[in-house]
Design a protein around this nucleic acid. Structure first.
Lengths: 191, 191
DNA sequence: GATTAATCTTGACAGTGTAAAGTTTCCTGC
DNA sequence: GCAGGAAACTTTACACTGTCAAGATTAATC
């Protein structure tokens, strides 16, 4: 069912080829026509599945985000305490982008992560990794008997996310060389 | 001297027009030809001043980085203690990108900040904002009589930078809505 | 088996970055 | 003052891009 005029599953093939392509050549070099060619299909074929280039990029971002979320969930899954879970999550977060530095800017580059996820407007901050953080951060507060106001809670949580996301960002800055070893397990991330 | 065949100061005019353009239309919409047209000059004229589009973009980034650095230095200048200086610097950092969210991805988007700054290869991490942080962080350690190994020092400093840069990044994520007020002076940034 | 919808191809168009060759102006030494 | 060369700019050209419209092919439905 993959031969002949109809491709079979072109939509997914385009997404996969696109992700493979930016891994090898970077986002800038990606063009609709090359992705189409990679799938042995004419340059206008993608328009049967995506409104425009951005819609393909959004689908690719969603696919990468899914992989990212799975890694975070895996890291957290066998941890006994919420504290351990948070640390494991932070390490997985940084590790993911250290291994795939191009993904950081691919995912957050346009900064409208709401666009490629279909976030419902009532609950705007349901970015999956953020949801996971929120869940374990709450658990962490409970387990340690820490009482904070809703506002303080949000601030502390964002600070936790910020340090992790900031480290991932710095780790991905090719121009800045630090003596920091991003995979050093001795470097504590969460205070 | 700005009329006729020779423009006078086309190089700077292109940089300024380019920055103005991405402020209004975003980086994606920027093209060499439009910037050239904005300066009333033919589409190939920029090649007398820049090797290619990337070189113009690098010059624009350098210009934005300079403005950014000035703001950081201004924020720090009248502070008495290094602790105050660090906090002021962090707020100025976040404030700058909160006011100009497009700049964050413009500066760090390609992640090769070494490219648009002429960093000498011996001292790779002399990114101006980073140099400023290093200076005041050292002062902070001295003033408070804190003794750390070189490695610990680096780790703590990166953590400080990470939380500030991470907050700036999150503040710029249009898709993620937090209840965090990025200009709230009560939100302490440095521990 | 005819109709219809989905998928894909072909051809076209304006916009892009960039290179080559030609034109205009400025600058320097005499 | 003026030749000659360097710098700045224009014109022309080309390959590549995203996107649209029209047509061809296949799959799905009744």
């Amino acid at each position: 069912m993959a031969d002949g005029y109809h491709h079979g599953n072109l939509r997914q093939a385009l997404i996969d080829a696109g992700i493979r392509f930016i891994n090898e050549n970077g986002e800038d070099a990606l063009s609709l026509r090359k992705v189409a060619a990679e799938c042995d299909v004419s340059h206008a074929a993608p328009y049967a599945h995506f409104k425009d280039k951005d819609e393909l990029l959004d689908a690719m971002k969603k696919s990468v985000t899914d992989k990212f979320t799975v890694e975070l969930e895996d890291a957290v899954k066998d941890m006994e305490s919420a504290d351990e879970a948070l640390i494991a999550m932070g390490r997985a977060y940084i590790s993911f982008f250290s291994r795939n530095p191009d993904y950081l800017m691919f995912l957050f580059g346009k900064q409208n992560i709401a666009a490629h996820l279909q976030m419902n407007k009532e609950n705007k901050d349901d970015y999956p990794p953020f949801l996971l953080l929120r869940k374990y951060y709450k658990k962490h507060l409970e387990e340690n008997g820490i009482k904070l106001s809703a506002k303080e809670q949000e601030i502390e949580m964002i600070k936790t996310w910020a340090i992790v996301h900031g480290m991932a960002s710095i780790a991905c800055m090719k121009g800045v060389k630090t003596s920091f070893d991003w995979n050093d397990p001795d470097a504590r991330l969460i205070t």
